[in-house]
Amino acid sequence: MIKAILARIQQKHRTITFPNGVPKLPDRFRGRPVVDSKKCVPDCHACAEACPTDALECSAGKLNLDMGRCLFCGQCQQACQKGAIKFTTEYRMAVRNRGDLIISDAAMKLADALGIQIRQILGRSLKLRQVSAGGCNGCEADTNVLNTVVFDLGRFGIQFVASPRHADGLLITGPVPENMKLALKKTYDAVPEPKVVIAVGSCAIAGGPYITHPQVNNGADSIVPVDLYIPGCPPHPVTILDGLLRLLGGLAAVSG
């Protein structure tokens, strides 16, 4: 026992102050991309050609980047000679509408809170059932991390529960393979109304690296309606946490 107490003292207090303090992210962290079409060379397409998931589209002198499809690999940034695309260390990326993930020169609209009615039902708690549906287990790992002492998810009233019957909603990862379609539908049906659905990671949003594979469904919203999209491959834990708190109205909706 004394050893455990000494160890506890040695390991110190490690919970981050988020959302009050912004966590330190590595300088090479590839967070939210910014696009500046003015720097584009006409008919260049180098970025679009480098993208493994066709997340970039240039038309009429305007460059659109779909953060839902993006793997955050940075290939486009490397391919662009003019610096029209840059991945920043900005971690806030969650949105309420799929369309808000397609960014161009304008600022992006981050997620706003759920409606007041559903928030009144939820009170100050959100119980989620996690459904892993065909990804690489990266998003699952960085969601699981929220339960560690570093993030201490419980202090925000958010908890992952062991049954859909106990849940207010689903947190889905993975592109939803054919082999998980039925299980996802059944889990969704088993959650009592009203329910929220959160898609985490580029797989769950658009299919990720497996987009257009016949074995997958290109994301969760082809099967169930999605209320919150959290992009990334995988999203950083703090990106996921930021998204969850936004949904609950814990953070002010801002344009960034």
Binding site: S132, A133, G134, G135, G174, P175, P177, N179, M180, A183, Y210, H213, P214, Q215, V216
Partner: peptide, 10 residues
């Protein structure tokens, strides 16, 4: 098999 997403074929 629930995670099968067709990597080898691709």
């Amino acid at each position: 098999g629930y995670q099968h997403r067709g990597i080898e074929r691709a």
